[in-house]
Design a protein around this nucleic acid. Structure first.
Lengths: 239, 239
DNA sequence: AAAAACTCCGTACACTGTTCGGGATTTCAA
DNA sequence: TTGAAATCCCGAACAGTGTACGGAGTTTTT
């Protein structure tokens, strides 16, 4: 068992591919491949993203892609890291740590909604690329001067990032359902007609419409930030 | 465009399949198919779950499965809803709403870790089945007597559920990486050797080891519950 | 006894990611 | 200048996927 060596992908993420010393010139670049792939994912979703589609979009044969990329999972890793690299860095924003973090979280959520395929790739265990590391580096800096220890800072970042991810997953799922017009209504109608009375009493007695996604997100985010604030104040009172 | 009618799957989720009036007896049941599929996902992961594998595990031909199930996505929906139905219901637990909710969240997280394929399916937009609806119904009941409005209750539930999901995604990703022994170390070693000094200064100055996942989860959960508590107290002071 | 309804499933189709081998092209070394 | 080495490109092929089709066999209804 060779154990699925992550190094080729890491090399690609961090160093790109070196220009060849002999042989015909490259007709493509790794960036072009990643861009084409991302374009397909944006327009038609991850399911439509096949190597042959990417190759066709670039006007080359499918096997040609393997000159630039070791395999599809590396391509996906590159797509993710490239996308992350485009996010403005948290610590460069104006305001207090709280303003920075709130803004950052909102924009991350918006990013996930704008690029739903990111949500699908989120749970896959990609190697860490420069984009992701730059994001983490910047996130740590957000808390410069707050008196929190490294460990506390990382804990806060991970806590909030987890929250954002989870809501991204929820919201994107809702977006997808809503996009297929009629599906959501069809389901509600079906449930309404098929529910045996008395089985789900708490749901039956609901009258108001449910809260919207943004409201829910803001509420929880606020609670988390309150918690962080508490912690920072506690740190300030330490020797 | 027929629009991918969700009704066949909904029927299966809510009513199962009716016994046939003529023709040979059923050799299988929907439950058996779901169980076989779940077994494969548990042992070898979602990627190994193909219709042919499921059929082979049941000793029938692949096409036979389509007598019981309209398509693979319906099978996945059944797997998810069946799994959810096995979770103990939140409102039946002892203690205050806070104790119930904390316990529920921890167990949900543990469930995701124990069944990582659930995390992969989480973001897909499955129709709502009886298991999921029972869970929601029970979650609402957790807040009986707290004075929160329906809307507030749902908002709290969704907020916390999003948090749990996000951390499940993070933790499962970490579990997967850790499971392939050596991968994680290989990556860290690679990064350590390839980082240009001065590029990621905040990360370079880290000394302590990062917080562990459980600690992070508990911290954020506590903050969220503090927020909920606040809200409940505010509700109590209302006319 | 015939017909209808139904399960089971071999086969086939269009797709997937990826490997292989060979032809074309460029560069390096002699 | 010539030959070898290195490299890109890619048609073809392989093993796999989800699923539609049509026919054979089985049971129930008429």
């Amino acid at each position: 068992m060779i154990d699925d060596d992550p190094r080729p992908t890491l090399d690609l993420l961090w160093h790109g591919i070196a220009a060849p010393r002999r042989g015909p010139r490259h007709r493509l670049t790794v960036d072009a491949v990643v861009e084409a792939a991302t374009g397909i994912a944006e327009e038609e979703g991850l399911a439509a993203l096949s190597m042959r589609r990417v190759a066709a979009a670039l006007g080359v044969g499918a096997a040609t892609l393997y000159t630039y990329i070791p395999d599809k999972s590396a391509l996906l890793a590159l797509m993710v890291d490239t996308m992350i690299a485009e996010v403005p860095l948290p610590h460069t924003r104006p305001g207090t740590w709280r303003e920075k973090m709130a803004r950052q979280s909102r924009e991350d959520l918006a990013g996930y909604r704008a690029h739903p395929w990111l949500v699908d790739l989120m749970a896959a265990d990609h190697p860490i690329g420069p984009g992701a590391l730059a994001w983490t580096d910047s996130a740590i800096r957000m808390f410069d001067g707050t008196g929190l220890s490294d460990r506390e800072v990382l804990s806060v970042i991970e806590s909030v990032d987890g929250y954002v991810r989870g809501h991204a997953s929820r919201v994107v799922e809702a977006d997808r359902t809503a996009r297929r017009a009629g599906r959501s209504e069809a389901q509600l109608e079906y449930l309404a007609r098929n529910l045996e009375p008395g089985r789900f009493t708490a749901i039956e007695r609901l009258t108001e419409p449910g809260p919207d996604a943004e409201e829910v997100f803001e509420q929880g985010l606020g609670w988390l930030l309150d918690g962080v604030e508490h912690r920072i104040r506690a740190a300030a009172d330490r020797p």
